[in-house]
Design a protein around this nucleic acid. Sequence first.
RNA 1: GGGUCGAUAGCUCAACGGUAGAGCAGCAUCCUUUUAAGUUGUUGGUUCCGGGUUCGAAUCCCGGUCGACCCA
Length: 506
Amino acid sequence: MSDSVPDISHDQHAVRRQKLAELRAAGFDPFRANVATTHFSQDAKALYVDGQDYVTVVTVAGRLITFRVQGGSSFVKIQDQQGPIQLYFRKDVLGEERYTVFKKQLDLGDIIGVTGPLFKTKTGEITIRVDSFTLVSKALRPLPEKWHGLSDAEQVYRQRYLDLIVNQESRHRLMTRARIVSAVRRFLEDRQFLEVETPVLQAVAGGAAARPFQTHHNALNTDFVLRISLELYLKRMLVAGYDRVFEIGRNFRNEGVSRRHNPEFTMLEVYQAYSDYRGMMTLVQDLMRHLVRDVVKPTETEGEGETAVTRPSMRIKHAASGEFIDFENGWREVRYKDLIIEKTGDAQWFSRSKEEKIAGVQKLGLFADAKWEDFELTNEIFGKLIEPTLIQPTFVTHLPKELCPLAKITADDPTTIDVFELIIGGMEIAPAYSEQNDPDVQRQMFEAQAGEEQQKVDQDFLLALEHGMPPAGGMGIGIDRLCILLTGAESIRDVILFPQLRNTAG
RNA sequence: GGGUCGAUAGCUCAACGGUAGAGCAGCAUCCUUUUAAGUUGUUGGUUCCGGGUUCGAAUCCCGGUCGACCCA
């Protein structure tokens, strides 16, 4: 290099582009190369038989995540979907020329394929001795720091791929989410539930009370909303004669963004004909235990040092309270009214006047709006003071009928509905109903709605009900919240690959 | 929408009104079983953006952008 060439050694992007140019000048374009892998990293390691060094030959590929050159030999690690595997490069194996290419033209972050036999190093790590390697993708940008990883929250979310490359915890958490969704599918399919897909673009945003996103279809010249719930179309499928159906799908709510809310989120809804909310109780309990036992697989360690014993557990630590949630024995069932009476200390709470309720809410230190309906005042107590304290799995039953127009009225109490709200870790995880299938009562309940809980009336849905819907139990589970709970995450953003952020694209 | 906090090298962080630094990464060097490898040397800055105060601003003040947390 002449003196006139500028020093680019500080600019990692420029240095890497130069290495790429050098590779191409030598007749090799990494972006046109590929590798025929035989195994993923951990599957390859599992092939190693103790004492049989340099016998089993594998080809694996992945991203270079550590680089330790020591003169004529080097240890590096690559990482694939299954995790890391160590590679051992030697000058006397590869030859001077290839070893120099390895040393001088590969960088952390590059994606390579290698072929060679497995062996165990003197520190006991199963390693591939590299007989040949191919660079299949040059990384033109440097990886975040190897030890601290990437911790800038904004970059973690906007460039999640970097977070997933360098932060083990994120890799594991989001991998667990994928496994949870997959296990939910298998669990339901094993019980003869059919997975269906229903419209995201809807004329009426029904099935819940929330502000929808609005959009427009040009060719039909019609306004649509993005769905806020899966419910009303799945019930049409019950009318259609699909007796057990479910959908795992994205809902959209045009509301605030917080630790618990993302504008788009994933819902599971399940409907089972000839069942009811009690049947859903058993189903969700079985499902949760299955997910904890077979997907999350928590363990607990007793004792310390050499006497320590680690064994499978059914308990998961709740991030916010530090309490352990027991999915085996923690389940409890309690009526909404009893919780309110206990909290207010007023056995006559539900026959108090609105003014007395406002005073009661304020006495508990909460804000009470005079515009609120009676049930909203009561529900403020539930939402603010009771729900957050229900850490162990709790079925809250017999909710006031105003809270949901889509459920059956309790036979011996016209003020409540046959539903449960499953609360775990202080979060609403799964509501379930004995679904209302009387078209006339359904219409009346829609019309009697008041306050913030009002739902839009879907006339086409009422028409479907008039054709006859079998009695059914139905349940919804917020998949994101379920993942927060099961992975011990603190925020919904930790379990969503690309959470919604303000757009900064200029 | 309101309050609090934050933004400094590619990344993780210092500097708290007086010369912008460190570790990792990069570059160069030595090193054939390492585990955040080690050795010697070294490059690198629009201190988020725009104003203001001051002899002097990463630092203080005002406005904005983006983010985190709390509240609505």
